[in-house]
Structures are given as C-alpha cells and as structure tokens.
Computed example of a mutant assay.
Amino acid sequence: MSYHPLPWTLESLDLDSIQMARIRHNEDLFFLLCSSSFVESGSDLYTQNLVDHFAGDEELQAWLSQHWEHEELQHGRALTAYVRKVWPEFDWDTGFTAFWNDYAAVCTSEQLEADRGLELAARCVVETGTASLYRALHDITDEPVLKKLTNHIKSDEVRHYKHFYQHYRAYREREGFGRYKVFRAILRRVNEIKSEDSEIALRHVFNQCYPQHLGDEKAFRRISDRAQGLLRRHLPAEMTVKMLLKPLDLPARLLSLLEKPLARITEKLFLH
C-alpha cells in the first residue's frame, strides 16, 4: 500500500535537545502525554472499524487507510518516543498492553453511528477534541521540543477535521438529515469521548505508575482530576465551540449568540 508523504516526520524532532528541567518534574503533563500516546498508538483498530463502516466509499476508505491512519500512528510513535526519552523509568510497553486489552473491548464498530453521514459528524467531534487537546498541551508547556511536537499534531488534527467535514457535507446533501439528528450524534460522541478513551488510558498510566494503589479509586481520581484540571485551564474554548457547532450549519446570527455561553461550558463536556 502506498502512503502519502507525511507533513512532518519523527526524525525532524531532536529528542536529544529536550530541556529536561522544563518537563521532567511535571507529573500532570506526563499523565496527559502518556495517556495520549496510548490512544494514538491504538489508531489502527479504530481505522479498520471506519474503513469497514464506509464500505463502497472508495475515496473515503483510501484516505482513511493511506493518510489518516498513517498520520495518527505517527502521533503515537512521536509521543511515545518523547515519553520514553523524558521518563525512561516508565514501562510504556507493559502499560500500553494493559490499555490495549481494555480499549479493544470498547473500540468496536457498534460504537459508530448507523447512519454514515452522522458518523462523519461524530468524527468531527473527535477531531475537535484532539485538536483542542494538543492546542492546550502546546500552550501549557514551555519545553521547545514538546511545543513543536504538539503544534505538529494539532495542525494534523485540524486538517483531519476539515477532511471529515467535507465528506460529512457531501453525505448530508445526499441523505438530507436535519440538524436535530446531527445535534444528537454530536452529543453522543462528546459523552463517549468524556467517558471512555481518555479515562481508560489515564487509568492504565496510573496503574503502571502506582501499582501499590491499584483499585484505589480515590487515589486515581486525585491524579486524574489534577491532570484534567491543568487541561481545563488551557482549553481553547472558542476554537472548540466553533468546530463543534460547524456541522450544525447554524445561521451566523444564532452562531454568534451561542459561541460565548457555550465556550464557558465546553470544558465540562470534554473534561471530567
């Protein structure tokens, strides 16, 4: 299978120049980066579900398998390489294996919207979440290599969003579903993001770091809430709201009225 050239490569990141003093002590960033590396490294499973779901749409299938998956897996490789470099004592392989066993059980085709056009609206939600995550991580850190890496990934995710949105518009035109159905699909996917991928990943990072606290929900919540609180303070709320609402194709006046109040509650949708 031929792949489109990647917009950036892992080799372009000089991991040896990481300024350890700026990042090594930050456990919250460690949890956020490591859990993200787990999720991104499982992208091939999700891609196959989507490829199967869009059987017959050869253009979208080709983009998913030859572009999107290729770039998502590079995100996983790059984040993993960064985590291994900064925190070499963390047993990434063991943590990821445990994560994968749980993640594979919930990352199934049954999660996808039965209506393919609505699944593309839901994909826009996922890409909104990841673009916002990496924009926040970029703003949080002052370590130059991590700033460069998170900017690369954020740019990829915004581009992926635009691609899914273009296909969504084509399906909407053909299938004629209304805003209410789109809104329901968006809301369902927001709730899934909140409750599954990041939760499973964070839990397995915690289990690997603190085996003595395995099963201690209070200890896990203390670490998880602290890391998510860091994200919450840096979430690009206005960008997130604009991306979330775009598939609804609302009139400009209504959109402008909704953006500010929704920006204030977006953090509650994406973060615990």
Rank of each mutant, 00 (worst) to 15 (best):
L32E: 05
L32I: 09
L32N: 03
L33F: 04
L33S: 04
C34R: 01
C34Y: 05
S35I: 01
S35E: 03
S36R: 02
S36M: 02
S36T: 03
S37Y: 00
S37R: 01
F38P: 02
F38M: 11
F38S: 06
V39Q: 02
V39A: 13
E40R: 05
E40Q: 12
E40K: 11
S41E: 02
G42I: 01
G42K: 02
S43L: 06
S43H: 03
S43C: 08
S43W: 01
L45E: 15
Y46L: 15
Y46S: 14
Y46W: 15
Y46C: 06
T47G: 05
Q48Y: 12
Q48S: 14
Q48M: 14
N49H: 12
N49A: 07
L50S: 04
V51T: 13
V51Y: 07
D52K: 11
H53D: 04
H53Q: 10
H53K: 09
H53P: 02
H53W: 03
F54P: 01
F54S: 01
F54G: 00
A55E: 14
A55C: 09
G56E: 09
G56Y: 08
G56W: 08
G56H: 08
G56C: 10
G56P: 09
D57T: 09
D57S: 08
E58H: 14
E58F: 11
E58A: 13
E58T: 15
E59R: 14
E59P: 06
E59F: 09
E59A: 15
E59H: 12
E59V: 14
L60Y: 01
Q61L: 00
Q61W: 03
A62P: 07
W63C: 05
W63M: 05
W63H: 10
L64Q: 05
L64T: 06
L64H: 01
S65Q: 10
S65W: 02
S65A: 13
S65G: 09
S65P: 00
S65K: 10
Q66Y: 10
H67V: 12
W68P: 00
W68D: 00
E69R: 15
E69K: 15
H70W: 11
H70D: 13
H70K: 12
E71D: 15
E71N: 14
E71I: 06
E72L: 04
E72T: 06
E72V: 06
H75T: 08
H75G: 09
H75Q: 06
H75V: 07
H75C: 09
G76N: 11
G76P: 08
G76A: 12
G76E: 07
G76Y: 05
R77W: 07
R77G: 05
R77V: 07
A78S: 15
L79C: 10
L79Q: 04
L79A: 09
L79G: 05
L79T: 06
L79V: 10
A81H: 13
A81C: 12
Y82V: 00
Y82P: 02
Y82M: 00
Y82A: 02
V83T: 08
R84S: 15
R84L: 13
K85S: 13
K85C: 11
V86Y: 00
V86K: 01
V86L: 03
V86P: 00
W87V: 00
W87L: 02
P88L: 05
P88R: 03
E89W: 07
E89C: 08
E89A: 15
F90Q: 06
F90P: 01
D91P: 06
D91M: 06
D91C: 10
D91T: 08
W92E: 01
W92Q: 03
W92V: 05
W92K: 04
W92S: 01
W92M: 10
